[in-house]
Design a protein around this nucleic acid. Structure first.
Lengths: 194, 194
DNA sequence: GCCATACTGGACGTCGCGTCCCGTTATCGG
DNA sequence: CCGATAACGGGACGCGACGTCCAGTATGGC
């Protein structure tokens, strides 16, 4: 029981230390030696808990806060989406979390374990939350019955990630508004094709 | 002149070798030693041309082919976009190029040089090409005068990258069609909000 | 034919991951 | 309260790879 408690304390300490160091020097320069040293812990103690640096880092970043990215429900679907997207942009696309989140996704590109864990522990819950909110809106008649909820989610998220990961353009409130307007007001061409 | 020619030959050889090796073992396991050995070249010769492994890799991937992702102009903007997006998905989201492109973007997340070069040499030209085609369509009256071309590009690209980099869901022809339909037919809700 | 330049090949320093081990410390059962 | 058991700290270690350096060698210009 107490052995278990002591273990938990160390687990917590190691994650917090890893996170602190990552915030200071970035993931690239984060070393297990440094984490062990600052946490006052042997490297074995870390490797007994995490199989690799990448997964420790993932745990450190994802456990650090319960995101605060849950969807409000004010009754206005657009306002609610706007709110969550703004919070997400603030949180994930700027220091101090932005670079860490970017590194995490970067790591996921060549580390299937990280990719899988990132999806399960962050992306999927977040997706499910948004879809649930959209579903409610549809049931309340705020959205057309054939409104494609899954696609809508990807149309809102995709461009944000595109800017974060590829072009590195800033994700402003104005941009979020443009996205929402395009999605909900439609961008249909004049002589309606197709 | 011949010294110059010899240099050019080596540059070419090194890039091709790097690309071959990357295709075989992936970027993570690609080593400069292996490239030098297989190319029959001293490591100095490589480092005289590229400052780091990451930039050699980027050069190798980007120079390998002139993408074949230029926009056709059949007069039908939707058909043309559909064509290019399909080609891009085939080329960039599946073996053999998919993993390399993913690794490249992964590397860009913590290497500003790679990020900048990737943007300049691939993303921006590709963006400009798409925007040019969209502009023509608008001038021909296929798109509304206030159609937001830049945003449209990001709405089409973002979700593809989102699937490639984050959720790893397949990018099917059907998905591309859904995206195009959403963008051009609009996804306006029933009781039109905002 | 000679000189400058680029080249090969290999040794080297450095770093950091992940493993191993040993002496120590904390916890739990009795 | 005490001894057995397990976890721990700290450090050494092997390993692989980046990037530098240094001979000795080949190649092309003049």
């Amino acid at each position: 029981m107490n052995a278990r408690r002591r273990s938990d304390d160390r687990t917590e300490t190691i994650m917090r230390t890893a996170l602190d160091l990552a915030l200071e020097v970035g993931y690239a320069k984060l070393s297990m030696e440094a984490v062990a040293a600052r946490a006052g812990v042997g490297k074995d103690t870390i490797y007994r808990r995490w199989p690799s640096k990448a997964l420790l880092f993932l745990d450190a970043v994802l456990s650090s806060r319960n995101t605060g990215l849950e969807h409000p429900d004010t009754g206005d679907i657009v306002a609610d989406l706007r709110e969550v997207m703004s919070r997400a942009a603030d949180l994930l696309a700027r220091p101090p979390w932005g670079p860490l989140y970017q590194d995490l996704i970067g790591e996921a590109q060549h580390n299937p374990d990280v990719a899988a864990a990132l999806n399960q522990r962050f992306i999927q819950p977040q997706t499910a939350d948004t879809l649930a909110r959209l579903k409610v809106a549809k049931e309340q008649g705020q959205l057309a019955p054939d409104f494609d909820l899954d696609l809508a989610f990807e149309i809102l998220s995709g461009p944000l990630y595109f800017r974060l990961l590829i072009t590195q353009q800033p994700i402003t409130q104005a941009y979020i508004d443009r996205l929402l307007r395009a999605l909900f007001a439609g961008m249909a061409p004049e002589p309606h094709p197709r």
